[in-house]
Structures are given as C-alpha cells and as structure tokens.
C-alpha cells in the first residue's frame, strides 16, 4: 500500500516561496487503479515525482508497503517496486529500443517478450525493436516506448504521467486496453495522472488535486459529474472575465 501523509513541496519562486503541494494525504490500496486529475499547475506531476523520489518533499512522509521511503533515492524506490512513466520522456542517442526494454526488465529478455511490450502500446515491434531512441522517433513514438518500459519493469506500483499526451487516437485505444488488462489481472497498482475521460472511467478511484491540495476523491460516479460541472462553471467564469 502507498501512504502519503501531509506531503508538502515548496520551491523558491521569483517573488518568494511557492507551495506546490500543501499537506496532501492519500492512501492507495494494492492493485487499485487510481487516476489523479485536476487543473494544470495544480501539483499532480509534483506529487507523482515526489512518490518516485525525483522531487524531495519539504514536508510529510511517503510510506510504501509500510516502509518510510521519503528519503530514499529514485534507484532505491525503483528497486522496491515503484516505476514512473515520464510525461516528456528523454531520448538516448545510440541506445536501441531493445536495450532500453532490457534495462527496464532488469534482465535479458527474449525477442518475443520485447515485441509483446511494444505491441501492448500499439507499436509494430518489427519496425521499432532495433531503432535508436533518438530524435528520429516522433514524440508519440517515444512516449509509447516509455510506457513499454514501465510494462517491461513489471513494478508493483506503476505511475504514468499523462500517458495520453502526444498519442494518436488509435494507439490511445490500444493503450487504454492495456491499462484495463493490467488492472483486470491485478498485476499492479496503477496511478495515472490524466485528463482523459476514457482513462478516468477505468479508475476505481479519482483523486482531484487543485491548487496544491487534495480537493476531492471518490468513485467515477461520485467525482466525474462534479468535474464536468466545475469545468462548465469555469468556462462561464472565463467568458464573463474576458468580457470585462
């Protein structure tokens, strides 16, 4: 189980300190599918990065399966079964897709295994397995390879930061099937930052993060109508403000 207790993250801005996360507390039970959503700049990515250890929180605690991991390195957390799919994954000149999948798996993987991970993200394995993960690939292709590395890692907790960003409709449909399959087979706990209705509707629970705080949480049926209502209201407010 993942337990987040009073998590805070403060950075120094131009006009003084900025609180990105303010005392966020959240428990995520094993094998659950949780979607974190909310407006841009609300602190969703910062929270995911804090869980992975990429950002060091300025307050609070993170526990993974009962162990306090707040001060552990990214490497330690990865080895304890947490993985993180970047919103904008880096490229590696000279590194083949096959090599990256092998690193992710942590052991030598067969050609068929490597291909199966690529197929699950909507890539034709034959065309990609021996390609370099460099600028010859489009943003959407790199993103899908990134997600394939998380699948190859087979972590207990898989965190995906906006996996839909930059991915075409057809591949996105394949990707949602993959997330559903992992969840149905209870292969991992899934934590996804997303704004996509199709992903949100797969979740056991939706967590709404706004202004650095956890503003609401609940099932799809409970939360989604509120999100829609808030969105309509915000649009109306924006229209009024713009007229002013």
């Amino acid at each position: 189980m993942l337990e987040i207790k009073n998590l805070s993250y403060r950075v120094e801005g131009e006009d003084g300190p900025v609180d990105i996360l303010k005392n966020v507390s959240l428990n995520i039970e094993d094998k659950k599918f949780v979607v974190i959503t909310g407006p841009n700049g609300g602190g969703k990515t910062s929270m995911a990065r804090a869980i992975m250890g990429i950002y060091q929180p300025t307050g609070g605690q993170i526990l993974w399966n009962g162990t306090d991991i707040t001060n552990l390195s990214v490497t330690d957390r990865a080895r304890m079964g947490i993985s993180y799919g970047f919103q904008q994954p880096p490229r590696f000149k000279g590194m083949k897709v096959r090599d990256l999948l092998t690193v992710a798996a942590g052991e030598k993987i067969s050609h068929d295994q490597a291909c199966s991970y690529l197929t699950k993200v909507g890539l034709c394995a034959r065309d990609y397995i021996d390609r370099d993960v460099d600028s010859s690939l489009s943003g959407g292709e790199v993103k899908r390879i990134e997600i394939a590395t998380i699948l190859a890692r087979k972590s207990e907790l898989m965190i995906f930061d906006e996996p839909e960003a930059g991915i075409d409709l057809w591949s996105f449909a394949r990707l949602t099937e993959t997330f559903k399959e992992i969840h149905d087979k209870k292969e991992a706990t899934i934590l996804i930052i997303s704004h996509q209705e199709r992903i949100i509707r797969l979740a056991d629970e939706i967590v709404l993060i706004a202004g650095g705080s956890l503003s609401d949480r609940g099932t799809v049926e409970e939360i989604y109508p509120k999100i829609i209502a808030d969105t309509v209201s915000s649009c109306n407010m924006l229209e009024v403000n713009n007229k002013c």
Partner: peptide
Amino acid sequence: EQILKLMTLGM
C-alpha cells in the same frame, strides 16, 4: 532527465 529515467528503471 536521461540519468533520472534510467534510475527509475533501477540503475
């Protein structure tokens, strides 16, 4: 980010 990515894969 390259280093971080590989660290998230356990390196």
